[in-house]
Design a protein around this nucleic acid. Structure first.
Lengths: 234, 234
DNA sequence: ATAATAAATGTAAAATGTACGTTAATTACA
DNA sequence: TGTAATTAACGTACATTTTACATTTATTAT
């Protein structure tokens, strides 16, 4: 009996593991997703998230960083694990887990040439084509996560340049939440959080008057965080 | 060049995948964690989360359910993926990913005999022993998730019996948040959410007067959810 | 000079959160 | 039998935050 059980528990099957990246950007007031053509069979050539098999000697998060750098040239961007996708039949070819990670990047900073070379393309999130396997589901889950998380943590800022205007930030929140916000209340709430640094520069791309540029004060933010400070934009 | 790249992308290493369960209960005003003695080498006999290798033909979530049922006899309990743990060196023996899932159970409903038989034991979360591999980290992460999630979703209720009193629920929130709550404000806030059904019964285990029992109104809750209703207990 | 445009500011009412004190129901036991 | 002890339940006043809404400001193209 004991032996039987031991044997049962010891069933060890090996499988593949993939790291797939949901790469979001923000441009022209829209959230964008970077997709590319799948490089391996089956389904080679179909639109797919950017991903790679995880190698035996690398961390899952490293695998994601590796592939992100390879395609976009970017390092040190915001990236966070979304979740693992582990349905037995998710890949028709062979058993393969995927650990999905989402990245938020400043869309103007990536290496366009590299992206071009890998056949990658930015899609508006309202116009995402059919993707391989369960990748559409991953994108939906990542958007949901972004929506939830942006409310209580300043992660959305990773989609904007270091210097940004309040109207820009509002526009970002409006597309994330998919609803309009009152500009007066938005500004008031935001400034009350005391984590923005007003600069002496203006951005005049959107108006004659120009809007003041701000930077996020991460230092103060992390200080306040320790005391249970609540960043919340609703 | 193209071939080289194709080869590079095609590096496919197989590895093991484990499903580990962080099983929380609530008893005597404390959050408890169910641990057992590891059944496989290496580290056989050490305290460990309950887990199993994922088999080739089963979903990751199924693996977690399988092992949970095996040890506690429980089915249909609240269980949710926490995250995947994918450090290359997390298991000294061989490359093994773990997909951690946390479960919230009513501690009185599990099969004590089964648990006994598997050498499992409930630990107060303040008295968790050293666990194998990165399991202590998993527990910390799961507690953090519980703390975050309980604030905006009524998942804590899964730790209580179907019928519970308001003081019981408050006690639960107090241990989750690790801070005292004002009983008058807690009650007011909770009842204002309009998702509790007051019963005609009282629970007299904690006082002479007895406290009225309530049930959570999942039906109404799910209705309200559709309209962007916000369950929030802070 | 003026028109056009988005940025920035203000304010009053409503809703929610916070900090308290008091009363109510029940049982053990004097 | 009534009184003390104990937790449950309720209420209120004040502070804070959210919401709804209108006007002024800075700038440039004409």
């Amino acid at each position: 009996m004991a032996n039987l059980e031991t044997d049962l528990y010891s069933v060890k099957d090996k499988m593949y593991a993939a790291a797939d990246c949901i790469i979001f950007g923000f441009e022209g007031g829209r959230i964008k997703l970077l997709l590319f053509r799948r490089r391996v069979e089956p389904l080679k050539g179909e639109w797919s998230l950017i991903g790679s098999f995880v190698r035996l000697d690398e961390d899952v998060s490293e695998a994601a960083k590796r592939v992100l750098k390879e395609i976009t040239g970017l390092e040190n961007v915001f990236m966070e694990q979304l979740k693992a996708y582990g349905k037995a039949d998710r890949d028709p070819g062979f058993r393969c887990l995927s650990i999905a990670q989402y990245a938020l990047i400043q869309i103007d900073e990536y290496d366009g040439e590299l992206v071009e070379k890998h056949g990658a393309h930015w899609f508006d999130i309202d116009e995402i084509p059919d993707l391989v396997l369960d990748h559409n589901q991953m994108v939906q889950d990542a958007l949901e996560r972004l929506k939830q998380k942006a409310r209580y943590q300043p992660i959305g800022l990773n989609l904007l340049p270091e210097k940004f205007t309040i109207p820009q930030l509002q526009q970002l929140y409006e597309v994330i939440y998919q609803k309009e916000l009152d500009s007066r209340n938005f500004r008031k709430k935001l400034l009350s959080l005391k984590v923005l640094i007003k600069l002496d520069e203006k951005d005049k791309t959107n108006s004659r008057r120009g809007a003041f540029l701000y930077k996020f004060d991460y230092k103060t933010y992390h200080e306040l965080e320790k005391f249970g400070y609540n960043f919340e934009i609703s």
